[in-house]
Every structure is written in C-alpha cells, then in structure tokens.
C-alpha cells in the first residue's frame, strides 16, 4: 500500500475539472468587464479558478494520507432516482395517486426481498395521506386522478 487516499484524489480531480470548465465557460461566453465595472463573467471566472485551486490542494493532501476506495451502494441510488423520475413522469399525466404508487413501487426496489402486498399497502396508505394532507389539509389544488388525457 502506498500512502495515497483515492477518495481525495477523485474528489480533488472532480473539483479541478469542474472549476476549470466553469471558469473557461464564463470567460468564453460572458463579458469579463473591468474591476470597476464588472461584467457578468467576472465573478464566475474567479469562482471557477478558486474551485480548481482548492482541487489541486485536495489532491496534494490526498498524497499524504492512506485510504481505501469508496463503496457505493448502487442499488438504492438507482432505485431512488428511478422512483423520483417515475413520480415526475406520471404526476402530470395520470394525477397524484398514481404518481405516489409509481414512486413507492419503484423506490422500494432498493430492498432485496421485494414484498409486493406490503409495498402495495404502503403505497395505498401514503397516497391517502398525501390526498388528506396536501389536497384537503393545505388546500393545494392537486388532481388525485386524471382520467381524460
């Protein structure tokens, strides 16, 4: 094992890339102006360079530490993201209740034994709560079901 912390290297590398991209994009697209009359590109350029500079520092410090590769829990990550997307895709077309069902049914794919009856029951309870709290309680005009589309 060498004395390197891969997490810090990745983190610093991302910062450098992001910072340089941000600064160069701002310089290329927006007018820089002068210190007295700053254009829309002035502040972003400097913010970008500062991010990149800090990224370099993070990388350098990463060489002085020992560490392990990070562990990603990919399954929950994808399931939750897909759940949000499912809600977003359904809510405008079919209404609030189907959207909550989509969210719950997809997001719970993150658990390994997928229990269908339990998940359906949970989705039913949650959509009832959603209608009561948001539509009735707070008076936000949601459409629970949209039949004609």
């Amino acid at each position: 094992m060498r004395r390197i912390d891969p997490i810090e290297l990745v983190a610093g590398g991302i910062l450098i890339a992001l910072g340089l991209w941000y600064a160069s994009f701002a310089l290329a697209e927006y007018s820089y102006g002068t210190a007295r009359r700053m254009g829309p590109g002035y502040f972003p350029t400097w913010v970008g360079f500062i991010i990149a500079g800090l990224g370099v520092t993070v990388v350098l410090l990463g060489f002085a530490k020992r560490g392990e590769w990070p562990r990603l829990s990919l399954r929950p990550m994808i399931a939750i993201l897909a759940g949000c997307f499912g809600f977003a895709a359904v809510v405008e077309v079919l209404g609030l209740v189907p959207a909550v069902f989509a969210l719950v049914l997809i997001a719970t794919l993150s658990e390994s034994p997928y229990k269908v009856p339990r998940t359906l029951a949970l989705a039913a309870c949650l959509s009832a709560i959603a209608v009561v709290v948001f539509s009735w309680g707070l008076g936000i005009p949601f459409v629970p079901f949209r039949w004609s589309f």
Binding site: C84, V100, V104, A107, F134
Partner: peptide, 18 residues
C-alpha cells in the same frame, strides 16, 4: 426505516412538485 423512507421520499416529491 422501510416504512419511513418511502414516506420521506413522497413528501419530498410532492413538496417539490407543488
């Protein structure tokens, strides 16, 4: 937590949408 997190997620999604 298996009951809690779908509920949290639902409140987030509806909240953001609203």
């Amino acid at each position: 937590y298996t009951i809690l997190y779908p509920a949290i997620l639902m409140f987030i999604a509806i909240g953001v949408f609203s």
